[in-house]
Structure formats: C-alpha cells, structure tokens
Amino acid sequence: MAGRFDGQVAIVTGASRGIGLAIAQRFVADGGKVCITARKAEALAEAVESLGGSEHAIFVAGSADDEAHQDETVATTLAAFGRIDFLVNNTGINPTYGRMIDVDLGAAEKTMRVNVVSAIAWAQKVYHAWLGDHGGAIVNIASVAGLLPAPGIGVYGASKAALIHVTEELAVELGPDIRVNAVAPAVVKTKFATALYEGREEEVAAAYPLKRLGEPDDIGSVVTFLLSQDSAWVTGQTITIDGGVTLTGGV
C-alpha cells in the first residue's frame, strides 16, 4: 500500500485532530503531501509535526466557510507543493441538540452553511485551481445521521443528507476525470462526538453488531481507498462505516 500517493497532494479540511487528522496520516503514510485546515493554528502546527513536518504537510488556519480562507488555502497549497490532486471535505459542525421543531434557525443556517455550502465552495475552488484541468478525486465526510432519522441531531442529519446528494450531483457533473464519493460514519471516538457516548460507551457500543465504536483510523483507511486508484471505478457512492449499527435500525 505504501507509495500509492507518491507525488500527489491533498487538502483535508477540519484536520487538526480526529477523523481529519487520521485521514491526513494515512495519506502521508502512503507517500502523499497534505495541507490541513482548521480554526486553531496551534493545534494545526502540532498536527503538522505529527505528520512529519513541512516536507510532508502544511497548514492554513481559518473558518471553513470563509471564502478568503478557502482562497488562501488553495493558493498556499499550490505554492508549497505545485498541485492539488484531492480534496477531503471533513469540516462539520453540530451546534444544536434537541427537536428540529424547536431549533434556533440561526444555528440551523450556520450548520447548513458549514456542512453543505462550504463543501460545495471548496470543491469549486479546487476544481478551478487544478482538478478541472488535471483530474483527481473528492471525498465528503457525511454521517449515518444523513441516512436515517437521528432524533436530537436532526438539523445535522439534514445537512449530511444534503451533502450526500451534493456528492451524487458532483459525481455526475465532474466525471470521467474527477471522482466524487462520500463516507457515512456512525459514532467515532473523537472529541466532536463525545456527547454521544461519554460515560456510556459500552451501552452505546452494545447496539453495534461489531460491539465497538469507531476509531478515526477506521474512517481514514476507507477515505484513502476512495482517493486512490484502488477505487478507480467508484463514483457517486456513499460508503457506510458503522460497525453494522444501521442494520439494527440505529444511528
């Protein structure tokens, strides 16, 4: 597997920790170079060091839905590495919990802007900067909450359902030279998902046929498969990575 991304470059958003960092780690381990983004520069700097330093990774700090940040990231990546072969839209927020009927609409709009609109914007930026002329692949990080009703996180689920549809639309528009896929994880043990399992991990995991929650590398391995030529005839698909929990009707 080592070397399958030799000479290739990816942008991974939301990658200072958790799933995004695991994706970047797998990509670099297979020979690629990566630009990671998130809001906090200090955490990103630490992540870059864990990836082997500036020879292998760089970072740009900023808000994923900020157009100036998107432009800076693309320009910085091209200046550092000379190309952008892949985009992973990993950034996501979930600022609300409770019934959708009661949700604060400002929070709902922010969720849609970050989780859906900014994913489209990143795709546009990378397409016009490099992918449109050279080809490549995009992977969007969705969620099982986008596949089934998810009480308490309904707006988040709606945003991920929209992202799955965005994936399908872009796959149709951008083929044959650009493949676009998504993954839909269930609960993965990250800081982002802590509220879903903290203090009751065994109870939550009991509903999963594989009897454990996900680890970030469970997602990173599938995402790098979708970026690689190992999935050369795969586009417009959403791969569910859930330890089997959706088989039992759960998210």
Rank of each mutant, 00 (worst) to 15 (best):
159 S>K: 03
231 S>D: 07
223 V>Y: 03
181 N>E: 03
163 L>V: 08
181 N>H: 02
160 K>S: 01
197 Y>V: 06
173 E>Q: 14
180 V>I: 06
219 I>V: 14
197 Y>H: 14
230 D>N: 02
195 A>I: 13
226 L>F: 09
242 D>V: 10
243 G>D: 05
164 I>C: 04
203 E>M: 06
235 T>G: 07
228 S>N: 11
205 A>I: 02
217 D>E: 15
208 Y>T: 02
239 I>A: 06
230 D>L: 04
168 E>N: 14
159 S>R: 03
237 Q>G: 05
187 V>A: 08
191 K>T: 14
174 L>I: 04
203 E>C: 07
165 H>E: 01
184 A>I: 01
206 A>G: 11
158 A>S: 13
217 D>H: 08
202 E>V: 12
157 G>T: 00
158 A>T: 01
195 A>G: 10
238 T>H: 00
202 E>T: 13
170 L>W: 07
163 L>E: 10
237 Q>E: 15
243 G>C: 04
203 E>L: 02
189 K>T: 02
240 T>D: 03
187 V>I: 15
216 P>K: 07
168 E>I: 08
183 V>F: 05
218 D>W: 01
176 P>S: 13
164 I>Y: 11
187 V>S: 12
188 V>R: 09
213 L>S: 11
208 Y>A: 00
160 K>I: 02
223 V>D: 10
230 D>W: 03
233 W>C: 14
168 E>G: 09
183 V>D: 05
230 D>K: 04
198 E>L: 11
215 E>I: 13
227 L>H: 06
204 V>A: 02
194 T>W: 14
173 E>H: 04
208 Y>M: 09
166 V>W: 02
181 N>R: 09
185 P>C: 09
223 V>E: 03
205 A>D: 08
241 I>D: 00
240 T>Y: 08
226 L>R: 09
234 V>M: 13
173 E>N: 06
174 L>R: 10
205 A>C: 00
237 Q>H: 15
232 A>Y: 13
208 Y>L: 03
216 P>F: 09
209 P>Q: 06
184 A>W: 01
225 F>N: 09
179 R>L: 05
222 V>W: 01
205 A>F: 10
169 E>I: 14
202 E>P: 06
235 T>N: 12
203 E>Q: 14
210 L>Q: 15
218 D>P: 05
181 N>Y: 01
212 R>E: 12
199 G>T: 05
207 A>Q: 07
158 A>D: 00
176 P>C: 02
201 E>S: 04
215 E>L: 13
230 D>A: 08
202 E>W: 11
